[in-house]
Design a protein around this nucleic acid. Structure first.
Length: 951
DNA sequence: GAGCACTGC
């Protein structure tokens, strides 16, 4: 009977929706496995009834979808409409399709419709991801409009805090973060039969992670179709990553833009040192003289530069022109001014925000400094820096594309064309520039297997991956799996296997950075969850405080009301408390907006703060966490009242106890961000860093000995932002469970050549000594064996540079193990020297190649990257660097000017054989389309081309 | 003595 029933259900499966099909299939597998003993007959019967119900409902739904797809209409004016039939055909015939189309091609709104025309969206939804919330909502609205429907029926959208998709939706537009989040509960993404990843060229962490997941998913779900759209010509990379998926190009609808470069002479004209601010002002002058018509946008790298540029331009007193700054930290009312319709000309001076996030209509002129702040994470020192760097060619072209949308445009680049051509084609994807802890935690939680084997489009450096694992270990989110004995096969595998700890699996569920989720877990134990939940959500939004340029003093005065003298974290709590106190009394949105305005707070960001706080609280409640504290509710944390200095003793005691538990919780997440005072405002932090307290902090000029910081970011120098005074005694208790992974306290002091700490724990000290002095080489006079090992490591790492790889050299952990096994109990230079004297040799500390190589690289490959190269009549040394995005990435030779004449110019174009392939590929991509088309796939053509060059 | 831009169960 049971088997017949199963067969019946199975025969119905193909007619059901994908999501139900898979769910029912899983249930059947389970039912088949059940013995009658575990499940009573009655239960089995009920289960069957339920499954049959589900399958019939699903079949009904699916046949409804088949009969009622939205009526499609197309706009013949859009360039993509010309290729409609071709694209629909390609969608039907391929599992993966890459579509490249410039702005104005209509791809974002039309492709979902083409999918429906290709018969998609019946078995499951058509999911379409966007990098930003605004894009997701506007795209959904536009498509619904084109279909003549209201939003939320055939077309819906889902962004954080807002789900506008009905059960019968055919098309669902969402942020890429949402799709990623959905993989947690719907591992195979069964809700969808088609997924469109839009704007893939932006290469955010989310996009790269989604593409990797889709790549693995495609093998398991043969019915799933994936469409990747990208604005640039970098489609080959996507195509290659997806087994040479077909690429179709759609032209954009743009008016011609005339690009004018500054010549080298212009650049050095007059005074030799002219800043980009001055050059931009001159360019505006020039335009202003020519005509008073057409809006101008100037791209600047920093807020400071924008302020200066605006000041200079204001000083010019242009007739009927208004100068408007635009950057993210500007209040939303100031931001929206750029959209206002004015009689005169608008001159907008903006950061990168105007490159992708904010589109201003009607721009005729673009002035581009060619610079931007781009964030970069350095695993070695665990710091984020925001250097001003030359932007890539694709980024410059994106800026150029901001004009020419409604009429002809002009783009003035404040640098020579040579400079433009020498730049990298693309901005390095975020995954090569970011802290990977969060990605790794998620990969382990989703059981996506070994990170080394994950199909990333660009594989992050081994060093970054290791750092991500280290941070997770430090936070106690993961633990290594102990293997009884390593087999040879396992040894050659690069990484260890890690499992989530109980903490870790909870952390993976929380929609915040792992450090913040770690804080929340600690806070739950310390009994201050309410307070720390407020702090953690505050740290995951932009600063709610506003500080308009012309009113900095007033803003600072109002903000001072919230200020806590010891901790910026308490300051955040105070803002929350005051806001909610007022809110309880006022209960009206307009009054709260008024309150925000008066106190220079952003109403929008506080709303975001409250939303995230609610989200975190929900997750924590679901996990059974509860505040074991003194009944303090989040509306009124037990922090001393604003301005009431006369607290009595018991209140003070309560306050200091609260202070302690809150900051201990913060420390659990930011243990690697503690620092000890060197001089006023200057602190010594871990890994040899020296930080300065950010001048906007409440602790500026007031900090005592030890501090913890939520952020250490390098801009004009390394700043600690959001800091608090801490008691060094708190570190011991926290460090105890984690001391194995904490290298900071006790810390290594280079000048003294020993580990300095309040209390010296020798095992711990030995570890720190080995890591800091021997592994990282932070030592005044390196010993001979260290020099020997250093040379060997340099040799291997230069080999890595040549081959453009980052995995030949073994990891720091192995190097640490090498020393650790041999030097147990030794924790300073003195005892090490004594030990060496006793042994009579340092041979046992000298590494051999086997100790350092993960694998030996191919001899033939090395031969393609020679040490020296002959050009003309002389030999030159080749210097290799592997830092995509940096100027000397690739090979560099230095030719003394005296010898320059002996070097034939064309030979410099083709220096080392190992790089031919990449070079040919770049050349092919720069060809006109008709030629390029004959050479696809580019990578293959380039490879075979490079083999045919003789050297 | 002063910070690019996005995003999430």
């Amino acid at each position: 009977m049971k088997n017949d029933r199963i067969k019946k259900i199975e025969s119905l499966l193909p007619k059901a929706l994908c999501a139900d099909r898979q769910a029912v299939r899983r249930e059947i597998v389970r039912l088949k496995r059940f013995k009658t003993k575990i499940l009573s007959d009655k239960n089995v019967k009920q289960k069957f009834i339920q499954l049959e119900k589900q399958i019939h409902a699903s079949i009904k739904k699916k046949s409804w979808r088949e009969k009622n797809p939205p009526a499609l209409t197309y706009n013949p004016c859009l360039p993509i409409t010309d290729k409609k039939n071709e694209i629909i055909d390609l969608i039907s015939k391929n599992q993966v399709l890459i579509i490249s189309g410039e702005t104005g091609s209509g791809k974002t709104t039309q492709i979902p419709k083409f999918c429906i025309a290709a018969g998609r969206g019946i078995d499951g939804k058509i999911g379409c991801t966007q990098p930003r919330r605004i894009a997701a909502t506007t795209v959904a609205r536009r498509i619904a409009e084109e279909l003549g429907e209201e939003l939320g029926k055939s077309v819906g959208y889902k962004i954080r805090f807002k789900d506008k998709t009905g059960g019968d939706a055919f098309i669902k537009i969402m942020t890429d973060g949402i799709l990623l989040a959905e993989t947690r509960n719907d591992k195979y993404l069964n809700e969808y039969d088609t997924i469109i990843v839009d704007e893939a060229h932006e290469r955010s962490l989310n996009i790269d992670f989604i593409l990797g997941i889709l790549k693995t998913l495609l093998k398991k779900r043969k019915d799933l179709k994936v469409i990747i759209t990208s604005a640039t010509i970098d489609t080959e990379k996507f195509s290659k990553a997806f087994d040479n998926a077909p690429v179709i190009e759609v032209s954009g609808r743009m008016y011609p833009v005339d690009v004018q470069y500054f010549t080298i002479e212009q650049e050095s004209e007059g005074s030799d040192e002219r800043t980009h601010v001055e050059m931009a002002a001159l360019a505006v002058d020039k335009l202003q003289k020519k005509s008073l018509y057409g809006d101008i946008i100037v791209f600047m790298p920093t807020e400071q530069d924008i302020r200066e540029t605006c000041e200079i331009l204001e000083g010019r007193n242009y007739k009927s022109a208004i100068i408007l700054p635009l950057y993210a930290r500007l209040s939303s009312s100031e931001q929206s001014k750029v959209f206002s319709r004015l009689t005169g000309r608008k001159i907008i001076v903006a950061t990168n925000i105007a490159e992708t996030s904010i589109t201003i209509p009607g721009i005729k002129y673009v002035i581009d400094t060619g610079l931007a702040r781009i964030s970069r994470y350095t695993p070695r020192s665990r710091t984020t820096s925001l250097p001003v760097v030359p932007i890539s060619r694709s980024s410059a072209d994106q800026r150029k594309g901001r004009c020419g949308r409604v009429e002809n445009g002009i783009c003035i680049r404040l640098y020579p064309e040579q400079d433009f051509l020498s730049r990298t084609l693309f901005t390095p994807p975020e995954i090569l520039r970011a802290n990977l802890a969060e990605v790794i935690l998620r990969m382990i939680a989703l059981k996506l297997g070994n990170i080394e084997d994950f199909p990333f489009i660009d594989r992050p450096a081994a060093r970054s991956i290791r750092d991500g694992f280290d941070l997770l270990l430090e936070l106690g989110a993961i633990k290594p799996v102990k293997r009884a004995k390593k087999s040879e096969a396992e040894k050659s595998k690069k990484s260890d296997v890690f499992l989530l700890t109980e903490k870790g699996s909870l952390m993976a569920q929380m929609p915040v950075d792992p450090r913040l989720s770690r804080m929340l877990i600690e806070a739950n134990q310390e009994g201050c969850l309410n307070e720390v939940a407020i702090i953690a959500s505050a740290l995951s939004i932009q600063d709610p405080r506003e500080r308009p340029v012309e009113k900095t003093q007033e803003a600072d005065q109002m903000h001072a009301l919230f200020r806590d003298p010891l901790s910026d974290f308490i300051t955040l709590l105070n803002i929350w408390k005051k806001y909610h106190d007022v809110r309880q009394k006022e209960k009206s949105t307009s009054r709260m907006k008024k309150f925000c305005k008066k106190h220079y707070l952003s109403f929008k960001r506080i709303r975001e703060w409250r939303d995230i706080h609610a989200q975190i609280s929900t997750v924590l409640q679901g996990s059974g966490a509860r505040d074991q504290g003194s009944g303090i509710r989040s509306q009124g944390p037990g922090i001393r009242d604003l301005g009431s200095a006369k607290a009595n003793n018991s209140e003070q005691e309560f306050y200091s106890k609260q202070y302690e538990v809150i900051h201990k919780s913060i420390l659990s997440g930011f243990l690697s961000n503690i620092a000890v005072k060197k001089e006023k405002n200057i602190f010594q932090a871990a890994k040899g860093k020296e930080v300065m307290i950010f001048p906007g902090s409440g602790l500026f000029n007031k900090a005592k000995t030890w501090i913890v910081a939520a952020e250490m970011v390098e801009t004009s120098r390394l700043f600690a932002r959001t800091v608090a005074d801490i008691d060094s005694r708190w570190l011991e208790a926290l460090g105890k469970n984690q001391c194995k992974y904490t290298y900071l306290k006790p810390h290594w002091e280079r000048s003294r050549g020993e580990v300095v700490a309040c209390e010296q724990v020798s095992e711990e000290a030995s570890e720190i000594f080995i890591r800091s002095a021997l592994v990282e080489g932070d030592i005044r006079e390196p010993l001979p064996f260290m020099e020997h090992n250093r040379r060997l490591i340099d040799e291997i790492s230069s080999m890595e540079n040549r081959l453009r790889k980052r995995d030949i050299l073994t990891n720091e952990e192995d190097i640490f193990d090498f020393y650790h096994k041999k030097l147990e109990g030794i924790y300073d230079i003195r005892t090490l020297k004594q030990h060496l004297k006793k042994r009579g040799t340092d041979g046992f500390l000298r590494m051999k190649k086997d100790d350092l190589f993960r694998y030996f690289p191919d001899e033939e490959e090395l031969y393609l990257f020679p040490d020296k190269i002959t050009l003309g009549t002389n030999q030159f040394q080749c210097n290799y660097s592997f830092e995509p995005g940096s100027r000397d990435d690739g090979v560099t030779i230095k030719v003394p000017s005296a010898l320059a004449a002996t070097v034939p110019a064309e030979s410099v174009e083709w220096l080392v054989p190992g790089l031919y392939s990449e070079k040919i590929a770049a050349l092919i991509k720069s060809l006109p389309k008709d030629y390029r088309k004959q050479l696809v796939p580019v990578a293959n053509t380039a490879d075979s081309g490079s083999e045919q060059i003789h050297f």
